[in-house]
């Protein structure tokens, strides 16, 4: 097998592979930067909770109108926005911290979803929900993912400054501006739309993977946030490409393959990363003069 056969032919020959590649690249572009901010705000698992909150909304959409992209995405987004908004407001107006209030709301949302599904008694294709269908991305889905990625980049550019300040020194932002709460809620909305995108391609369980694993990789290679975001997006795209190739040749399901490759890159970064990687810590070299 030539290098061409191994790395390029799958995409040259099959349209579904090209679509999958475009899909994961767009996902990495939108979800990566969001993941970096989630990580820096110590909200890494919030993405996971939000993904669970989206599931019931999507399930209800599925029940109402079958495997319709519009219905499932709309349902998912509504569920996600409602949970994000409620959790954010409760955290900002009461003593309950964000993680605790989010845990409460996503569990309620999950329970409502499961209840509705079981009352209806339909047999949902659970695998589709859990692991997505990156190899069967149709036009509307690709467009949805692309739109969400574009919205994410534009909104992030607009709220970048207050978002960074809110992460480093929330007290300062509060003392000079009222932007804190709206910026935070906008940011949570970005988390939701990216999870809905990821949900289509990778399923609810792994949608968070393309958001958080590349961000964790970026942390090991950059000391400033711009470079961190660039590395995150690049490693997300690289994982997407390598995962698809791996899945093509080995028959491993493609969604998990993408995240497994990202996990492999993470392990490498953990070992050899230039910022706090294990090798650097074990062999720091002789100390400096000053």
């Amino acid at each position: 097998m030539t290098i061409y056969d191994a790395l390029i032919a799958p995409f040259a020959e099959f349209e579904f592979m090209r679509r999958a590649l475009v899909g994961v690249c767009a996902l990495a572009l939108g979800a990566g930067p969001v993941g970096v901010f989630l990580m820096l705000r110590r909200m890494s698992l919030v993405g996971d909770a939000m993904a669970h909150a989206i599931l019931p909304g999507a399930a209800i959409g599925f029940l109402v109108s079958g495997l319709s992209l519009v219905a499932m995405s709309t349902g998912g987004m509504i569920a996600g926005f409602v949970i994000a908004l409620l959790a954010g407001l409760v955290a900002r107006t009461t003593e309950l911290k964000e993680d605790a209030s989010l845990a409460v709301f996503f569990l309620i949302s999950l329970a409502i979803g499961v209840t509705i599904v079981s009352l209806k008694g339909t047999n949902i294709d659970l695998l589709h929900f859990l692991f997505g269908t990156v190899l069967a991305l149709d036009d509307p889905t690709l467009i949805l993912i692309a739109i969400n990625a574009s919205i994410t980049l534009v909104v992030l550019a607009l709220i970048y400054r207050p978002l960074v300040i809110e992460c480093v020194d929330p007290g300062f932002l509060r003392s000079v501006s009222r932007a804190g709460t709206p910026v935070h809620l906008l940011f949570l909305a970005l988390v939701v739309i990216n999870l809905v995108s990821g949900f289509q391609a990778l399923g609810t369980l792994l949608a968070v993977g393309i958001m958080m694993v590349p961000a964790a990789i970026g942390r090991f290679w950059a000391r400033d946030i711009t470079l961190m975001i660039a590395i995150t997006v690049a490693s997300g795209m690289a994982s997407g490409y390598a995962g698809l190739v791996l899945s093509y040749h080995s028959g491993v399901p493609s969604g998990p393959a993408v995240i497994l490759v990202a996990g492999f890159f993470y392990a490498l970064s953990l070992a050899f990363g230039s910022v706090g990687g294990l090798a650097r810590q074990l062999f720091p070299g002789r100390h400096l003069e000053a």
Binding site: L40, C167, V168, D169, G171, F172, S175, D224, I225, M228
Partner: peptide
């Protein structure tokens, strides 16, 4: 306003 216990996240990558 300089608060007594500034809520600064010193691990944040900013110079």
């Amino acid at each position: 306003y300089l608060p007594q216990a500034a809520e600064i996240d010193r691990s944040f990558p900013i110079n």
